[in-house]
Structure formats: structure tokens, C-alpha cells
């Protein structure tokens, strides 16, 4: 038990270290900016004095590593600066947008994960059969389809042709359940489509990998039925890899959200980030990027913990 705790703590330590490195990468990459944020903000016609004054306000006159430390401190205490584009504190913008994105991603994950795992496990169970081959080709095709093709097709069919739902997705607070469903149906469906195929493929591979182990043959030779072999023998050993597959696919969700929020005009953190890129609004961009990276690392961490806890070699 002690060693499990130790392993988990060590994983958390590694993740924190990685996050720290990530913050350096993000900060230095976004400071590569040719030209100058102050100049950019004030336009070409600004006087040199005005630019210099703004530089000082923004702290751009300090050397790089000091600015980095300031920024990092701000990030940790929850005050990552002022957005250049709309003069609001970044924290406030993010606080407003983040929950909406989490809601969207959460719903998408909730519908996708069970189905994807069922598909993946079933297709591994019947590995090599017609069903499996069909699912394989289908998911292989689905992972290669760009999100915006899915989204535009859905809009075309359900909003334009059938007129069942609106193409605009945002459900205002206090919306009825029906409104809520109608608003979220298309974005969630798009994400679902992108996610399920990826996750089903990866979990299938994880289970298949276990099924090729000698202990599975042994179980078959004991007279165990196929469901017993897969569910009782292979699955417990596949928990680690499956958790990993789920985490990696969900991180794919992070990318998918960007397209979906843009296409459906959904006011979440991803569309905020896209705007910040277009405006070269670095403080906002850096914060959004860090949030995405933290989310990714959190997913991977959870998967790792699942793997550690499910492994009796480490548990006992």
C-alpha cells in the first residue's frame, strides 16, 4: 500500500514538473513575437513615447526571465494579467467561459465513453470476425474525417433540411430541458462522432493485446466461455491500457472543442483562445494554452493512477 501511494505521488510530481516545463515552452514560444505587443496595440501611428509608456505598463521593458517569473506567479495565484484586446482581467474572461466548455466536453465524454468502450471491447472479443472487420474499417474512416465536415453535415441535415434544431447552440441560463437538448444536440453529436471512433480503436487494441497473452489461452483450455475469458481474465489486466486510451482520446476532445465552438458560435474557452490568436492577445492566449495543457496532463495522470491501482504487482 505504501508503495502505491509513493508511486502515485511520484507520478503527480512528474506531472507538476512537466507542467512547469510546459509553462516555459508556452511562455517562450509566445514571446517569439516579432514586433512588439505595445506597438501592435497602439498601431503604427503612435508616438514612441506612448509606446514606451505602454511597454512599461505591460512590463515589456523587463528582461525575459523576470517577465516569465511574474507571469508564472500570476498564473499560480490566479491572476494571469489583463487581456490586451478587451482590457478585462484574463481571469474574469476565463472564469466566464471555462465552465461552458467543461459542460460541453463533459456531456460529450459522458455519451461517448460507454459506447466507445462497449464497441472496442466487443470488437476485440470477436476479433477477426466480420463484425470486427467492419467496425475496424468504419472507425478507421471516421478518425480520418475532419470535425468540420461532420459539423457542417449535421447542420445541413438537422438544422437546414429537417429544421429540428437550431444551428446556434448556446442555451441561455434558465432554458427548458427541450431547449437545452436542442441547443446541445449538434455540438455534442459532432464531438461524439470524432471521439467514439478514436476511443473504440484504442480500447480494442488494448484488449486484443491482452487476448494474445498465454494466460488467455490457458483460460480457454480450462473450458471458460468467451465472455468469461474476456470479461474476467483479459479485462482486469487491460484496465491500465484502456484508461490510457480513454485519456488520450479525451485529449483529442480538447482539439475537437476548438472547431465545434467556432462552428456553432459557442462561447467557450476554445473560441476565446482562437480570438486571442487572431488578436495576438498574448496574456489571454498563454492562459488558455496552459488550461488546455493542464487538462491534458490531468487526464493522463488519472489514467496512470488507474493503471497503478489496478496492477497487483504494485498494489500488494
Amino acid at each position: 500500500m505504501k508503495s502505491v501511494l509513493f508511486l502515485i505521488l511520484r507520478r503527480i510530481g512528474t506531472v507538476l514538473l512537466t507542467l512547469f516545463l510546459v509553462s516555459m515552452v508556452v511562455f517562450s514560444l509566445s514571446s517569439l513575437l516579432p514586433g512588439d505587443a505595445a506597438q501592435q496595440l497602439l498601431g503604427q501611428s503612435a508616438t514612441p513615447e506612448a509606446v514606451a509608456a505602454l511597454r512599461e505598463v505591460l512590463g515589456l521593458d523587463k528582461p525575459g526571465h523576470l517577465r516569465y517569473l511574474d507571469w508564472l506567479r500570476g498564473l499560480i495565484v490566479g491572476d494571469p494579467g489583463i487581456s490586451l484586446a478587451n482590457d478585462l482581467p484574463v481571469a474574469q474572461l476565463v472564469a466566464e467561459r471555462l465552465p461552458r466548455s467543461l459542460l460541453l466536453a463533459g456531456i460529450a465524454a459522458l455519451v461517448s465513453v460507454p459506447l466507445a468502450l462497449t464497441l472496442g471491447i466487443a470488437s476485440a472479443m470477436y476479433g477477426g470476425t466480420r463484425v470486427d472487420r467492419f467496425l475496424n474499417t468504419l472507425t478507421l474512416t471516421m478518425v480520418a474525417i475532419p470535425e468540420f465536415l461532420v459539423a457542417t453535415t449535421l447542420v445541413l441535415v438537422f438544422a437546414v433540411k429537417l429544421n429540428w434544431v437550431s444551428a446556434l447552440s448556446y442555451a441561455p441560463p434558465g432554458a427548458s430541458f427541450g431547449q437545452f437538448i436542442a441547443a446541445y444536440a449538434l455540438p455534442v453529436l459532432t464531438l461524439f462522432f470524432v471521439l467514439v471512433a478514436q476511443m473504440a480503436r484504442m480500447s480494442r487494441a488494448a484488449v486484443l493485446d491482452q487476448l494474445s497473452q498465454p494466460y488467455v489461452e490457458m483460460a480457454v483450455l480450462k473450458g471458460a466461455s468467451l465472455p468469461r475469458v474476456v470479461l474476467r481474465h483479459a479485462l482486469p489486466n487491460a484496465i491500465g491500457p484502456i484508461a490510457n486510451a480513454v485519456a488520450l482520446s479525451l485529449s483529442y476532445l480538447l482539439g475537437g472543442v476548438i472547431i465545434v465552438e467556432v462552428i456553432f458560435n459557442y462561447p467557450g474557452i476554445a473560441s476565446l483562445m482562437v480570438d486571442s490568436v487572431a488578436n495576438r492577445d498574448m496574456p489571454l492566449l498563454q492562459t488558455c494554452a496552459m488550461i488546455f495543457c493542464a487538462a491534458y496532463l490531468l487526464l493522463v495522470l488519472i489514467a496512470d493512477i488507474c493503471a497503478i491501482v489496478s496492477n497487483p504487482k504494485l498494489r500488494t
Partner: peptide, 11 residues
């Protein structure tokens, strides 16, 4: 089986 180590389910 030949390899007991591989033929026992580790979990």
C-alpha cells in the same frame, strides 16, 4: 503449459 509465469493471470 511450458511457461507458468506467462500462463497465470497476473491480476
Amino acid at each position: 503449459a511450458q511457461s507458468a509465469a506467462a500462463s497465470f493471470n497476473p491480476s
